[in-house]
Nucleic acid binder design. Structure first.
Lengths: 230, 230
DNA sequence: CTTGCAACATGACAATAGTCAAGTTGAAGC
DNA sequence: GCTTCAACTTGACTATTGTCATGTTGCAAG
């Protein structure tokens, strides 16, 4: 069953962290805990949602297949992040598919349980809205990036997010393979390669899945500069 | 104050239509009713959300300004549609700005009222999640379009949505001006013009803000065909 | 160790979209 | 009615990205 370490991660997730301990215990004890291999499907687009999912370890991608078979990556989640909240509570089909992109551990909270707890304590609804809002926000940010930035600039932002609040000069590991990064940023792997070489001119070195950023501010300027004057 | 006609529209909105009449009456009687001129700001990005907004007439756009000043249109709402749900209940700043793109009527439901009603009846939380999910879904669809379709194909889908379920051969009015359509579809006005002329070859005629689609199925095929084999 | 494969890089080319500039047109204001 | 302006269209050009082909590399199965 579930290890204590996993439960600890689940408790820190955005979905659960603001809930009273009592409810969290109920949810954790009724949750389903599962491992997935790399490449395994967690659920498919159009399938009916029966649970909310919390990633405890590894990486999960949400993606959509267009009628032509092209795949558009919508988001990528890792430890402590949850998805499927808004869908699970409405008994509607998933708008996306979910797949493990590395070996991973996922906790599934059955939606009927969540619904019944919600009737007792409206605070749960607020918690769910909180994580749903976070997703909404990140989709909006992605839309802005796609519409207003070039490929290389999106890659720059992606790298900046990886080194987050670190001070100056920065080494980061790329969290998943370049094909997935390309999908997440809405470009082909070849374009990602070229974007990386372009970023060499603003002090970024890529070696395998390791990136060295010599000057974070310079990279930030590049990401936020007007695409037309470069 | 509010006309009965406006209240009737509000009752039919996705946000309110599944709520018990009693709650709806409470909400309507405490709501703020306002008119906006074309171009007027409804709220600004980073402002703190104090209400949920329901459009009763006219058109409203949500957009984001990137640091460089480029504007990315996130969505466009009209009669019966609501926005700001997830944000209002969390006391967080709006991730987008809202502006009237035509003269319009908007109802504002103060969020504290919604929160207190939600504590009495969790059904309200479900209703809010319902409309939030709708937005989430439409953002996901937009992302897929941007990542997997060419400009002309996005325009084709936009036209198809306008004539919705009508049978065969179809006249539609473009709901707002072409600059806004271009923004909504993530392209420049010039590119929209060219996309329209390209669609002539699949039986679409554009005249001012009026579009004639001679064969809906042909347009659908075009929109869903692989961009690489055309 | 070797074979085979998938990820990744790079070059050449085509398609697509953005930029800049020059027109046209239609509607609002005078 | 005329003026003016912004929306829109079109053309020429450029930049960016996708496509296809080729080659390298590193890892894992045998």
């Amino acid at each position: 069953m579930a290890h204590e370490a996993q439960k600890a991660i689940a408790r820190q997730s955005l979905l659960l962290k603001s809930l009273p301990d009592q409810h969290v215990d109920t949810l954790l004890s009724h949750a389903i805990w599962r491992s997935y291999d790399r490449g395994e499907t967690i659920f498919l687009q159009e399938e009916e949602a029966k649970a909310v999912h919390v990633v405890l370890a590894g990486w999960v991608k949400l993606f959509r297949m267009s009628p032509t078979g092209a795949e558009a990556v919508v988001s990528v989640f890792t430890r402590g992040e949850s998805f499927g909240e808004a869908v699970a509570l409405r008994n509607v089909p998933y708008p996306v598919s979910a797949e493990a992109v590395s070996a991973c551990e996922v906790m599934h909270i059955p939606s009927p349980l969540l619904l019944s707890l919600m009737k007792e304590d409206p605070e749960i609804g607020v918690s769910i809205l909180a994580s749903t809002f976070t997703h909404l926000h990140s989709l909006v940010a992605q839309l802005e990036q796609l519409k207003a930035q070039t490929g290389a600039q999106r890659v720059a932002e992606f790298l900046l997010n990886l080194c987050d609040a670190k001070p100056d000069g920065c080494d980061v590991e790329l969290p998943y393979d370049k094909m997935l990064i390309a999908g997440r940023l809405g470009m082909k792997p070849e374009s990602l390669s070229r974007a990386f070489s372009r970023l060499k001119t603003v002090g970024v070195q890529i070696n395998r899945n390791h990136a060295v950023i010599s000057d974070i501010e310079r990279l930030r300027d590049y990401a936020e500069s007007d695409p037309s004057d470069k």
